[in-house]
Design a protein around this nucleic acid. Structure first.
Length: 198
DNA sequence: CGCGAGATTGACT
DNA sequence: GTCAATCTCGCGC
């Protein structure tokens, strides 16, 4: 995985390319099987939509760094910053299959019944790899980094569909996954705790 | 087995 | 004060 690939302007294409890549952290390696693209300031669903803030600052920096955010009072989710410098696009890592370090992942995720559930979902993936605020802003392409993104086996097929859990912009099919993979989360319409829109 | 609601902290309006 | 790119458990069928 090289920085020029991640820095391409077409976020959707970059997201597709991330499928099959390997993410290593905390003694665990996963093969990415599900991702979502977020087109920065131009995307109403993106955290960068309303401009730079203390939380999303990394997204406005160079590609290849990690953007982690804390949500729902208990979950961390991880993005890979993409696009040209100053363009705040990013790709949310939604799921992966554990290819190494399954025992360490299982210790962090005792609730997972099957191995396929260890990193099935964005918050679960971070939990399985032990990712939290400490990983914010790390350069995923630096060999010395504790969190590494490396090339992997590209999937034979890639499926696309609407993004999950976002409050708006359901029209753009920017969720990509490896069809048939057991670690891909089932599509669930946004089930807001409070009154959903219409 | 599928759906529905609670949990719980931080960032933004 | 309100809301959030979610997960898990419990209840109902």
């Amino acid at each position: 995985m090289d920085r020029a690939t991640l820095a391409a302007a077409d976020v959707a294409a970059v997201a597709r390319g991330l499928l099959g890549c390997h993410l290593t952290a905390g003694g665990v390696t996963v093969r990415l099987t599900e991702v979502e693209a977020y087109a920065g300031a131009a995307d109403p669903a993106s955290h960068a939509y309303r401009g730079p803030t203390a939380r999303n600052a990394v997204m406005f920096g160079p590609a290849g760094h990690a953007y982690l955010y804390f949500t729902y009072g208990m979950h961390w989710c991880m993005n890979v910053v993409t696009g040209p410098d100053a363009v705040a696009s990013a790709v949310l890592l939604r799921a992966g299959s554990v290819v190494d370090g399954a025992e360490a992942a299982r210790e962090r995720r005792p609730a997972a019944r099957r191995d396929a559930d260890l990193a099935r979902g964005p918050a679960r993936l971070c939990r399985a790899l032990g990712l939290d605020r400490a990983a914010y802003g790390l350069d995923l392409l630096n060999p010395a980094s504790p969190v590494r993104l490396t090339a992997g086996e590209p999937p034979a097929q890639v499926a696309a569909g609407p993004r999950v859990g976002v409050t708006g912009a359901h029209d753009v099919p920017w969720r990509f996954w490896v069809p048939g993979d057991a670690t891909v989360s089932a599509y669930r319409r946004h089930t807001a705790r409070s009154q959903p829109r219409s």
